[in-house]
């Protein structure tokens, strides 16, 4: 009987904890900011976000995609159904064909209410203090429930065993077969004070279609532009509060 009672208690606890944690899901205390010069930290008050100006994004440019693959060692298997895409270019046409097609990159939206994090049984998917939705691949069991839950198709399972490419970026590990991965907003670069690779590449290609910054900082460019310009998020109706905003759709 004890075992049984324990299970029942566990379930009660599960419900209680689920309700208690539901609104914010902050399992860890905010880290003290280390003053040591070589440490980069996720800042608790920050909310990283992106604004994509689709009017500046052209169909023939794939600078952000290739920058992402090189920076994050994302392999391309040549198997369209199973290739990993952290960021992909999408072409939109309205169904009545009354507007010109719109090109835009789609990547993980780093939602405020991420459904992938809600469904992950081991909390391998989690929200970092600065609003990044990340995957702890040490903890991922490869159940793929998050891929089912994500409405943006932002996640991919690693279907093949991969070897690191010859000129691999050592700052980003490659991924073992069987875990799920996705865009990290280049968390490793953010921690060093750099911009994500795609944003940098977009600026280098002289498009400047991707604006990245801290949504909570009233002086940041992204904050200012979101106030002034008419933007939207993908599937706002789902209530996920994505942190990637689009202009010109």
């Amino acid at each position: 009987m004890t075992m049984d009672r324990r299970t029942v208690l566990g379930l009660g606890g599960a419900i209680a904890a689920g309700v208690a944690l539901a609104p914010g899901l902050h399992l860890f205390a905010a880290p003290a900011n280390s003053t040591s010069p070589d440490s980069g930290s996720a800042q608790p008050g920050k909310r990283w976000g992106m604004l994509i100006d689709t009017t500046r994004c052209s169909s023939d440019c794939t600078a952000c995609l290739s920058a992402c693959r090189t920076e994050n060692n994302v392999p391309l298997y040549g198997d369209p159904d199973r290739d990993i895409h952290w960021i992909r270019k999408v072409e939109l046409r309205d169904q009545n064909r009354r507007q010109l097609p719109v090109n835009l990159p789609v990547l993980c939206n780093h939602c405020e209410n991420p459904p992938c994090v809600h469904v992950c049984p081991t909390a391998a998917s989690f929200v970092r203090h600065d609003g990044l939705v990340l995957i702890d691949k040490h903890r991922c069991i490869g159940c793929r429930y998050c891929i089912i839950a994500c409405p943006y198709k932002a996640r991919s399972l690693v279907f093949y065993k991969t070897k690191p490419p010859r000129d691999a970026n050592p700052n980003v590990p490659i991924r073992a077969a069987g875990v799920v991965e996705k865009c990290t907003f280049c968390a490793h670069r953010l921690d060093e004070g750099k911009m994500p690779a795609c944003v940098e590449a977009c600026a280098k290609a002289d498009k400047n279609a991707m604006i990245f910054g801290d949504l909570n900082d009233p002086n940041s460019e992204i904050h200012q532009r979101l106030l002034k310009e008419k933007t939207q998020t993908i599937r706002a109706d789902l209530g996920l509060k994505p942190h990637v905003h689009y202009k010109g759709i």
């Binding site: 880290p31 980069g40 930290s41 970092r128 702890d136 040490h138």
Partner: peptide, 18 residues
């Protein structure tokens, strides 16, 4: 360190695996 780095975003370069 891996727990701190990955989940809490405390990356101390001198103590990193690399």
């Amino acid at each position: 360190k891996r727990e701190e780095t990955v989940r809490e975003g405390i990356a101390v370069k001198s103590e990193s695996f690399l």
